[in-house]
Design a protein around this nucleic acid. Structure first.
Lengths: 210, 210
DNA sequence: GTGAAATTGCGCACATGCACACAAACGCGC
DNA sequence: GCGCGTTTGTGTGCATGTGCGCAATTTCAC
């Protein structure tokens, strides 16, 4: 591959994808980088450059075909197939995740839920039987999983992640406040609302104190 | 103020703060940028430069005093006071947020919960009576609020945000998948797990297909 | 008290990502 | 079919953020 594609570009593609999905469902057939940019708060040049990493999808004087570009992004991001997801930790947060309506429609299949509490194991959540986390390792060996979502108490995060990584899971969404260590070939994203709030308070303070 | 402090720096401070809290609770009194960097996966130089925007907190040959640096960061981020937070939308996600244990200990007080559903209004969640979202506007005029957390259905996100902004709330954490428009003097952070997953699948695909 | 080891703060060079601007291409109207 | 307005793709310059390297400072051992 000649040029490396920056991560920031990859992170913007889902935004474009999302907007194009909306435009497509509204029946729009063509859109310009100008309009995409206004909607997303990004400069049109940025959008054109991002897309140009992957091909020449637009037509001069016209813009981009909405369905065409949607399909291209779908293929680029790998959203033209389905991905197997497991959720570990079915507390309040895990349950909210398991019932989040946005996953299924976007190609993410939650194929199993795990928890350590004997009170939960065996119960039904969103039509899924909650399985014992002790069986996670064996299950992963039988059925390959693409993505693990971790919503256990922070102190168990690293253990669960290690189990996932050892079993060949290469993408992990970590909802616990603890950062976890992984080999470089594993993608981890941390979702920690407290960190967001803490950087926002800096700005709030600026406003107040000058 | 002579130099503007980059946003990326501000976003890293909570990470440092978090690690220092842990070290402090473990009784560590001194730490080097080297060690901080190893723990966080950041270069030591980066950490020293980030901190140097705010002052000279370290001692050559020794490192940083953990309690001292913790206090400095606390003051810088505005975590030495308490912040008033409201949560709007008490579905599964909103309930998970309302009961998230990490907020209170970090200076964030959830002072009210709001929902639109008549089935929920008046019920108790985590010791809080759920209030009717219709009263939000009036309540905000009576009691100033610092941060709004929005977990309503996507199609109502903009309305709720507009209400918050009109009432002078300058920081918003948006858990809905919809992006919202705000004036430039309002800080908004979007938490959308699907966007994370979608950029991770790109990398998964790379691994597979080459 | 002196030398050696450690570590900060910062100047500087480098890399990376962003916006601008323009040539090339396309469509539309007449 | 021709010209005009529109919009893409990209070469180029610029800004911003990152890492290196070193002088200055501190600690520690002997």
């Amino acid at each position: 591959m000649p040029i490396e594609i920056p991560d920031v570009v990859i992170d913007r593609l889902p935004l474009y994808y999302r907007l194009l999905s909306r435009l497509d469902s509204e029946g729009r057939s063509v859109v310009s980088s100008q309009e995409l940019g206004e909607e997303l708060g990004v400069t049109p040049a940025q959008i054109r450059k991002d897309l140009s990493y992957f091909g020449r999808f637009g037509k001069q004087g016209r813009g981009y075909s909405v369905p065409r570009l949607l399909d291209e992004l779908k293929a680029i991001l790998g959203l033209d197939g389905r991905w197997k997801v497991v959720v570990i930790g079915i507390g309040r947060l895990g349950r909210a995740i398991a019932s989040y309506p946005g996953f299924e429609g976007q190609g993410f299949d939650i194929i199993a839920l795990y928890d350590a509490s004997s009170g939960l194991v065996g119960t039904e959540i969103e039509g899924q039987r909650v399985k014992d986390v002790a069986t996670l390792e064996a299950d992963l060996k039988k059925t390959a999983v693409d993505i693990g979502i971790v919503a256990v108490p922070g102190e168990h995060a690293q253990d669960v992640v290690d189990t996932l990584v050892d079993a060949g899971v290469h993408a992990i969404l970590n909802y616990t406040p603890n950062r976890v260590q992984t080999p470089p070939n594993v993608e981890v994203r941390h979702i920690n609302p407290v960190l967001f709030l803490q950087s926002m308070t800096y700005h709030l303070k600026q406003r107040r104190g000058g």
